[in-house]
Simulated assay, not measured.
Amino acid sequence: MNERQAQNDRAIAKHGSGPDTTLPIVVYVLHLAGIITGGLTSLVGVVIAYVYRGNGPAWLDEHYRYQIRTFWIALLYFGISGLLTLVLIGFLTWLAAVVWLVLRCVKGLKTLNEHRAPDHVDTWWV
Rank of each mutant, 00 (worst) to 15 (best):
N55Q: 12
I73H: 10
T70L: 13
L101V: 04
A74D: 09
G18F: 06
T22I: 05
I80V: 15
A49V: 00
F71C: 13
K110A: 14
L84K: 00
W100R: 10
P57Q: 14
I68K: 01
Y64N: 03
L92K: 08
Y64P: 02
S17C: 08
R104G: 03
I35L: 15
G82N: 04
G56R: 07
L88E: 11
T70D: 02
T70V: 02
I80F: 10
G82R: 02
K110Y: 13
G34C: 07
I89A: 09
Y66H: 13
V98F: 06
K110S: 13
T111S: 14
L30K: 00
L88I: 12
W72E: 05
G18E: 13
A58W: 05
V87S: 11
A49T: 04
V51T: 14
G38S: 10
K107T: 14
S42G: 15
L84A: 07
A96R: 09
G79Y: 02
I73C: 08
G39V: 01
L30Q: 04
T85W: 13
Y77T: 09
L60G: 00
T41D: 07
V51E: 05
T21C: 05
V46S: 04
L83T: 03
L88D: 07
A49D: 01
R65L: 15
I35Q: 11
I35P: 08
L32K: 02
T21M: 10
Y52D: 14
V44T: 02
T21L: 12
I35D: 08
G18T: 13
L23C: 11
G45E: 06
T41Q: 10
S17P: 03
R104S: 05
G54K: 03
H63D: 09
G39I: 06
G82S: 01
L101F: 08
E62W: 02
A58Q: 12
V106W: 11
V29Y: 01
L76K: 12
V51M: 11
P24S: 00
I36Q: 04
L40M: 13
K107W: 01
R69V: 06
L83A: 10
S17G: 13
T93R: 13
N55S: 15
A49C: 00
L32V: 04
V99L: 12
W72M: 09
Y28P: 05
W100M: 12
G108E: 05
R53W: 00
V87L: 15
A49E: 00
Y66E: 09
G56P: 07
A58V: 11
V87N: 08
L75S: 14
L92N: 05
A96W: 06
V26G: 01
Q67T: 01
G108H: 04
W100N: 04
D20R: 11
Y28A: 07
I25S: 07
T85Q: 13
P19R: 15
I89G: 08
F91W: 15
G56W: 06
V106D: 12
G82V: 06
L83V: 15
T41E: 01
L75R: 12
I48R: 00
I25Y: 14
L84R: 00
T93W: 11
L23R: 08
R53P: 02
V26L: 15
G79R: 01
F78I: 09
G16Y: 04
L40Y: 12
F78K: 06
V99S: 10
I48L: 15
L88K: 11
V47M: 07
I35M: 07
I73Y: 12
L83F: 14
C105R: 03
L92H: 06
A97H: 12
